[in-house]
Design a binder for these strands. Structure first.
Lengths: 152, 152
DNA sequence: GTCAGTGCAAACTTTTTGCACAGTA
DNA sequence: TACTGTGCAAAAAGTTTGCACTGAC
């Protein structure tokens, strides 16, 4: 098991005095390569299937570490468990989640970001991060609904 | 234990064919009266202290019911448990959470709401609800930090 | 009277932790 | 070599569930 991890990411981790163990390299690699959001259990299953020899405890500890160093985002879509996404070097984005098919759409909007800063200034609140999630029904699911209605 | 529940709320619940049991009346009353966000365990402790005779299971089941009927909002501030707030009749708002003192500030911004709708239109996404949380340091905590720095 | 709601305790899911051992810098 | 990181298993924390009993309509 040897997922790709760009050298500059390893170097940035080392700059933060994070020891690069075999386990951490693998976990970072999976989260980095993984396109969608990933949760701890899914990560564990991938590692287990590949006989990577990484325990759950290490997964949780490593993810916490990466989140605290802001290499990774931790999010919650109200499903009783946290999901993670690689953040470093990625442009900031927010999420829309389809309540029908579960798909997560990423979007980035300059106006929202600017407005958030203005609001924070009004409250004299110093922002460090934010979460924005819109729940609803995606276009594809609405098309499917429409087709179904027309067939009846 | 007899927390206040306005009659029109009871009536709206009945319109939704929700049976008004003793336990539900109490839970709704507490969530309605409670100023801050409340979690299931806190609710349970209040009920226990007042010898209300309501089990944890009923609390979870009632909260789920109220959320599904959109009387109550369920939120997650990344603390491993859900918090709830009475929603019906309250103006929509988003949250800022202070990472130092834990305080939650509510705000409502028309421009953000409008912009969210525009974004959804661009993605042909039909929104039903959204969550926006800004994390950072509140004014009071920054003042305290400042005072501390000046004393050293 | 009927059927949905409730209490209890057990189960389940996710995450955290203590401790002995392992491995990076 | 000196610590920090890891694995394991147990525990903690939050939430859900099966089943017999209760009570609202």
């Amino acid at each position: 098991m040897n997922p790709e991890v760009p050298n500059d990411i390893i170097e940035r981790l080392q700059k933060e005095h994070i020891k690069i163990t075999r386990q951490r390299r693998i976990i970072i690699g999976i989260v980095y390569e993984h396109q969608d959001h990933i949760d701890a259990e899914e990560l564990y299953k991938i590692l287990k299937k590949n006989k990577a020899g990484v325990s759950r405890a290490t997964i949780y500890r490593t993810l916490d570490l990466l989140v605290s160093k802001r290499f990774v985002n931790k999010m919650d879509f109200g499903e009783g468990r946290s999901v993670y996404e690689f953040k470093l070097g990625q442009p900031h984005h927010d999420h829309m989640k389809c309540l029908r098919c579960g798909k997560v759409i990423e979007f980035n909007d300059h106006i929202i970001e600017l407005r958030q800063n203005t609001i924070c200034q009004n409250y004299r609140f110093l922002p460090s991060s934010h979460i924005m999630q819109i729940y609803g029904i995606c276009y594809e699911c609405r098309q499917k609904d429409k087709a179904k209605r027309e067939n009846n």
